[in-house]
Design a protein around this nucleic acid. Structure first.
Lengths: 348, 348
DNA sequence: CTGAAAGCGCTAACAA
DNA sequence: TTGTTAGCGCTTTCAG
C-alpha cells in the first residue's frame, strides 16, 4: 500500500541531465541556462513533480512545521488562539501541528517529544494543569528548540511569553461584582500551579482589598482539571452552598470551567439569585439565561503574537537572547448574570 | 538555531562498532551477541539516544502519522470526533495531525497535499462545503493513499465511509416538531453540495410526506458556510420572516449553524413563539433559554470508527477492495425549544 | 557475529 | 553552464 511520486532523478533521466542540474533548475539557480530551466520546469509540471519534504527535512534540518500543545481544542479560548496561530503560519509558509494534552502531564510530554523528534522547527506551548515538572521542556529548550509559551506560562524557562492580562481581567470582574453590591464573592478556579490561576487570584484579591473586603480563603475553590471533570466543579459549588455565610456572587476562571459552573448553578436553581461572571470566550453567552457576563481574552491575537515571536526566533540568524513577555488586555463584557439581583439573597 | 541529537554514528564511534551493528543491536536483531547488544543499549540509554524519525520515514516510506481534515475545530461535532480519533490513534502508536479547511476548497487542497507530501500514512477527511471538485483527492487515492471519509462524504471515491444516520436524524426531528403541532416547518441547512445536506433534507421531506404535509421549497434555506458567515443565516431567517405564511417552527442542521440561528432568533425575539430544533453536539444546550432541543450525533464514535477503518487499511498487507459504509444512529434530545408553544403564532 | 556499502530524495561543494 | 560526489540518519543486502 505505498504510492510513489516522481523524483528529481526521474526528471534527470528523462531529460538526460544530472540530478543536481535538475535540482538547480527547479529552484531557478542563476547558473543554469534558460533553456535547460525551461525544459526542466516544463517536464516537472507535466509529470506533476513535487519535492519530497521528508528528504528536504533530513537534509536541511528543518521542516517548516511548528507544533502546538494545548490542553484541549474543544475550548473556545484555545480554538480561537489556534485560529490566530494558523492565520499567520499559513502565510509564512509554516504548517501547524496541533496536539492536546487533555490536562495530562504525561500526554503533554509524549506529544512534545514526538513533535520534537519529528523535527518541528519550534513549539507553542500552553502548559497542562498537571505540569509541575517541566524538565523535559527545559532540556529541549537547552538543546536549542525554539519555544514560546502562551496563556499558561512558566518562568522556569527563559523565552518569549504571551498572555492575557489575567490580573487586570480578574480585578475588573471582581470590582464589577462589588459595584453591583455583591459582598461575598467566591472564586472558583483551576489548578493552583498554573500561572493563570495565580495571576487571576491576585487580581481578585487586589479588588477585594481595594474595596476593604477581607480576603476569605474558604471562598476560593480549585478545580484542577478546569471543568473537564464535572464532579470537581459540583463539589466546589456544593461546598460553597453549604456554608453558613453563603456567597452572593461567583467569579470563575477558564472557558470550560465557567460554562460548567454556570450549568451546575442553573441545575441548582441558584442562577437567578447569584451574581456570576467568568473568564470565557464563548460565542453564545447571549443565548444563556440569564445571559452570561464574561471576561473575554483576546485569544486570536494571543495566538498571532505567539507565532510571530516563534517564527522570529526560528528564522533568526543568531541565537535570540532578549525575550519579551507580551501581555494583552482582556475585555469585560457585562450581561445579565452579573447584574445586581432583586433579591440579593444569602442563599447561594 | 539548530539542535543536534545523538545519532547511531555517535554510538558506533564511541563503542568502536559499525553503524550497522549498532542499528541491529538497537532493535535486538538475533545476529548480534548479547554482550554487544547490552553495551549498545546501555550507551544509547546513557546518551539518551532517539532515532531520527525523519530519516526513518525517508527510508521506510511511512510516518505513523495520520492526517485529519475538518472544516473547523471550533465546532463541537468535530472536536468530539477528533477526540474519538485520538483516543484510538494514541494507543495504536499513530500521531494525529489536525488541519482546518475553514470551508475553503483551496485551503483543504493545500492541507491535504501538504500532509500527503509530508508522508502521512493515511487521511481522514470531512469535506469542506465548497468541495465540488475532489479530483485531487481522487488522484491521491489512485496513487494508493489510504483514506476514510467521515461526516461529509462522497461517493465519487471508492473507500470506507463513516457517518451519522442523517436521514433518520432529520426525520425524527421533523416528525417531533409535527407531533408538537407545528405545521409550517422551515429547514435551514448548509451547502446543498454536501452529502449531509442531501441526506438531512431527504429525511425532512420524508417526515412531511408521511404526515401529509406538502413540501414547500421556499421553506428551505441554504447557508453554504454553515454559519461561519453569520449574514447568510440572518438573511435566511429574515426571508422566512418576510413570508405571508411565516413558518411556525425551524429545523436546522450543523453544529455551528444551529447555534447561530438560535442566537439570531433570540435577537429577533421570536424564540418564544417558534419551535426550534437542530443538529448540534453542544454541551450547553441546557443553559440556553429556552433550552435547546437537538439531534445529537455520536461524534466520538464516528471518529473512532473512522480511524479504526483507516488503520486497518494502512496496515493491511494486500490492497483493500471491500469497503464499508458505517452509519451510526443519532439521538433526539428534546428540551424546551421544540415543545408545543402556548401561542402557536403565525409570526416566525 | 560483525562490517562495508548502497540507497531513500535532495542539496551543495567541488570539478570540469 | 553542467556533472560528480558526498552526505543528512537509518536500514539492509552482501561479504567476511
Amino acid at each position: 500500500m505505498k504510492f510513489e511520486s516522481a523524483t528529481i532523478k526521474d526528471i534527470a533521466k528523462a531529460l538526460n541531465l544530472s540530478t543536481s542540474t535538475v535540482s538547480r533548475a527547479l529552484r531557478g539557480s542563476y547558473e543554469i541556462s534558460d533553456e535547460t530551466k525551461k525544459q526542466v520546469l516544463e517536464y516537472a509540471e507535466k509529470i506533476n513533480y513535487r519535492p519530497n519534504p521528508i528528504a528536504l527535512s533530513l537534509k536541511e534540518r528543518r521542516t517548516r512545521a511548528i507544533g502546538v500543545v494545548v490542553s484541549e481544542i474543544a475550548n473556545n479560548f484555545f480554538s480561537q488562539a489556534i485560529n490566530g496561530i494558523e492565520s499567520i503560519a499559513y502565510n509564512r509558509g509554516y504548517h501547524v501541528i496541533i496536539t492536546q494534552s487533555h490536562e495530562s502531564h504525561e500526554r503533554e510530554k509524549v506529544n512534545v517529544q514526538h513533535m520534537a523528534a519529528r523535527g518541528v522547527d519550534g513549539l507553542l506551548v500552553s502548559l497542562s494543569s498537571e505540569s509541575a515538572d517541566i524538565s523535559y521542556l527545559r532540556e529541549l529548550h537547552e538543546k536549542g528548540m525554539p519555544m514560546v509559551f502562551f496563556d499558561r506560562v512558566t518562568d522556569e524557562i527563559e523565552t518569549h511569553r504571551v498572555t492575557a492580562n489575567n490580573y487586570n481581567g480578574a480585578f475588573a470582574a471582581t470590582e464589577h461584582l462589588l459595584s453591583q453590591g455583591y459582598k461575598n464573592i467566591a472564586h472558583i478556579t483551576s489548578s493552583p500551579f498554573l500561572s493563570i490561576t495565580k495571576e487571576r487570584l491576585a487580581g481578585y484579591k487586589a479588588a477585594l482589598d481595594k474595596h476593604g473586603i477581607p480576603f476569605n480563603e474558604n471562598l476560593v475553590k480549585y478545580c484542577p482539571h478546569g471543568g473537564m471533570i464535572v464532579k470537581e466543579a459540583e463539589d466546589a459549588l456544593h461546598e460553597l452552598n453549604a456554608k453558613k455565610q453563603k456567597p452572593d456572587a461567583i467569579f470563575t476562571t477558564g472557558d470550560r470551567l465557567t460554562i460548567v459552573c454556570y450549568g451546575i448553578l442553573k441545575q441548582m436553581k441558584k442562577n437567578d439569585q447569584t451574581g456570576f461572571i467568568g473568564f470565557s470566550n464563548t460565542q453564545v453567552a447571549d443565548l444563556f439565561s440569564p445571559s452570561l457576563s464574561v471576561v473575554r481574552q483576546p485569544a486570536f491575537e494571543i495566538g498571532q503574537f505567539s507565532i510571530e515571536l516563534l517564527i522570529q526566533m526560528i528564522e533568526s540568524k543568531r541565537p535570540v537572547t532578549e525575550f519579551q513577555t507580551k501581555i494583552l488586555e482582556t475585555e469585560l463584557v457585562v450581561r445579565e448574570s452579573s447584574l445586581h439581583k432583586q433579591k440579593k439573597s444569602v442563599h447561594l
